[in-house]
Write a protein that binds this DNA or RNA. Sequence first.
DNA 1: CTCCAATATGCAAGCGCTTACATTTTCTTC
DNA 2: GAAGAAAATGTAAGCGCTTGCATATTGGAG
Lengths: 338, 338
Amino acid sequence: MTQLELPTLEDVAKAALVSTATVSRCLNTPERVAAKTLDKVLEAVKTLGYSPNFGARALAAKRTNTFGAVIPTMDNAIFARGLQAFQEELVKNGATLLVASSSYDPEIEEEQIRALVARGADGLLLIGTERSPDIYQFIEDRQIPMVICWAYSNEPTRSYVGFDNYQATFELAERAIKFGHRKFGFISAHQAGNDRARERIRGVIAALNEHNIDASSMDIIESHYSIAAGGECFKKIMETPTPPTIVMCGNDVLAAGAAKMGHEMGLNIPNEVSITGFDNLELATILEPALTTVHVPHREMGKLAAGVLLQNVNDRSYRQHIKLPTSIVEGSSLGPVS
Amino acid sequence: MTQLELPTLEDVAKAALVSTATVSRCLNTPERVAAKTLDKVLEAVKTLGYSPNFGARALAAKRTNTFGAVIPTMDNAIFARGLQAFQEELVKNGATLLVASSSYDPEIEEEQIRALVARGADGLLLIGTERSPDIYQFIEDRQIPMVICWAYSNEPTRSYVGFDNYQATFELAERAIKFGHRKFGFISAHQAGNDRARERIRGVIAALNEHNIDASSMDIIESHYSIAAGGECFKKIMETPTPPTIVMCGNDVLAAGAAKMGHEMGLNIPNEVSITGFDNLELATILEPALTTVHVPHREMGKLAAGVLLQNVNDRSYRQHIKLPTSIVEGSSLGPVS
DNA sequence: CTCCAATATGCAAGCGCTTACATTTTCTTC
DNA sequence: GAAGAAAATGTAAGCGCTTGCATATTGGAG
C-alpha cells in the first residue's frame, strides 16, 4: 500500500517558522494565538494542502467528534428522516455521524456498537431499549454518552429522546373501538428483540381490555418490514374464518402492503375493513383512502437526540428524558364498522 | 471529561506475560503466533475486556478499515437500498461504513468528503460524477480509493459501478413514442450539480430527436425529491395550455406524487395522461395503476462497489468500470395515446 | 547429540498530534 | 523606563498501537 507522503503538522510548522504546538493551537484554539501568527500558519496550511491526521488527533486528544448510530435497517424510510435530522444537527456542531445497521439482529447490533466504540465514537444513538446487559455494561464502563430513541422510559441512568409507543397505539385502538370495532387484527414487526413492536401491541391489547373486549381473539402476525410482506400478512389475516373488522399495522410500510392487498382482494376500505399504520411516512400520503396513522416527530427526535449527546460529551453525568408527543393522523382508512 | 481508564495493549501484555508485539500479532495475524500463546493472550483480552484503540491503530497502521459514502440525502429510499448492500458487503469483510449526506449541495458534499478523508476513510463511495476538480484532486493526491455509483463512464482514471441514466430514459421514451406520445412533460430533480438528472433528461430528448419530435416543446420542471413536490409539479405541467400526454418523472418518488395528483385532478392514468418513474422503489408497487418505471439493480450496485473499493485498497492502481443493466418495469401507468 | 533452519517472541522506534509546563515577548502601570 | 502581569510561543512528553529487526526457542536431519 503506497500511501502518498502527506504534509504533517511538522511540515506546516517548518513552513510557517513556528513550533508544532503553535500550529496545533491555530487549528484548535485560534483565539489563543496572535493574529499575525495565525495568518502565517493558515497560509502555510493552505499552500501545503495540510489536513490533520484523524488517528493521531484522536489518540492525542482522546476525542473524535464522531458519533455513531446503530439502526435496525437503512432499507426503508422508517429511520431515515430522524437520522437525517440527527446528522444535520451534528454537522452543525462540527461533528460527524457514523451509521451502522443491524438488520434487526441483536448480535449484529452488539458487534456494530463495539465497532463504533472501537472507532472512537464520542457518543451513540441507539434505537429502542432492549439489548443485552453486557453491551449496556460495555458502554457504561467506557462512559460513552448514549441516547435511546424511538422509545421512551424515565429510567434515570440512561437518556431517552423518544415517544410512547404503547400510548400511541392505545389511543389509536380506542378510536377504533369508538368506531365500533371489536375484532382486531395486528400486523407487527418481529417482536423478539424489538421493544417498540411489543409496546405497540401492548397498547392495543390494553385498550381492548379497558373496554372489556377479548384481546386474545386478536390475530397477531409478525412480518419483516416490506410492502409485499405486509400484503401477505393481511391476506392471511383476512382469510381466517372470522376475519377482523380492522387490521392495525405496526408500521406504515406494512399498512401500505395491507391496503394494496385489500384492493386486490376487492375489499372496500374502510367499509369492509379498516386499516391503520404507524409513523406517518410520506408513503402514507399516497394511499387511497388516506391512511389513518400515528404521526411521530422524527425530525425533532433526531435533532434533540443530537443535542443531548453533544451535551453529554461535556458533562458525563448529563441525562435527559424527553417524551415527544405523537398524534393520530386522521385518514379515512379507519372508519366505523358497517 | 473524565474518561475511564481503559485497558491498553500493554495491560494485556502484562497480564499474559508476553510483549505488546505479541499481543498485537495475536489480534492482527494470529497465524504467526503459537497456539498456546494465542490462547493465553485471548484469555487476557477477554478478562480485561480489552478493545483496541482506534486512533492508535490508525496512526500506527495507516489503515482504518473504514469506508465512507457521501449520498445526496438519507431522507428517502433512493440510496438506501444500494447503501445497505454496500454496507453489508463491507461488514462481511470486516470493514465499517461511514455515511454522510450532502443535501444535494456540492459544497457540503466537498466538506463531507474532506471530513471522511480526515477521519481516515480507506475508500470512498460517491454518487454521480460531477464535482469540482479540486476535490477530485484532493482525493487523487491522497490516493484514496474511490468508486462512483449511480452513474457510468468509462473514464479510465476512476472506477465506476453504475448504470447508464441516459440509455435508460432513452429507451423508456422510445417506448412512449411507440405508444404514440408526441408531447412530453418531465419532472426532474434539480439539474445543477446533478449529472444523473441531466442524463435522464438528455436521454428523453435524444429519443425525441431520433424520432423527429420537437424536443423543445417538452416542459421540464425541476423539483426536490418528495411526493408532495412531485404532485405540485405535475399539476403545473398539466395546467399549461397544451398539456403533455405523458409526464416522465426523474424518480419514482416524484412519479408517486404525480400519480396522486393525477387522481385528485380526476385524470385517468394512462388514458388521459401517462406517467413514468425511475428507480423501481418498493413505493412504485403500491401505485395504481402500477407504475411503469426503470428498474435499477441497486443492491448489486452497492455490493459490487464494495468489492471494487476493497480491491482498490490493496492495489492502488486498480480501476473498474461496471455498467449494470437497467430494465423497464412494465406497469400500466404508461399506455397508448387515446 | 549437534547444528541449522524455521518458527516464535521481544525490543524499540516511530506514527502525527495535543497539551502541561517552561520560556520568551508584549503590554501595563507607576 | 523598570517591573510585574498577561499573552504568545516553544519544549518535549506522551497517547496506544504496529512492525522491522534482533533474539530466543523449537524441530528435524544427520
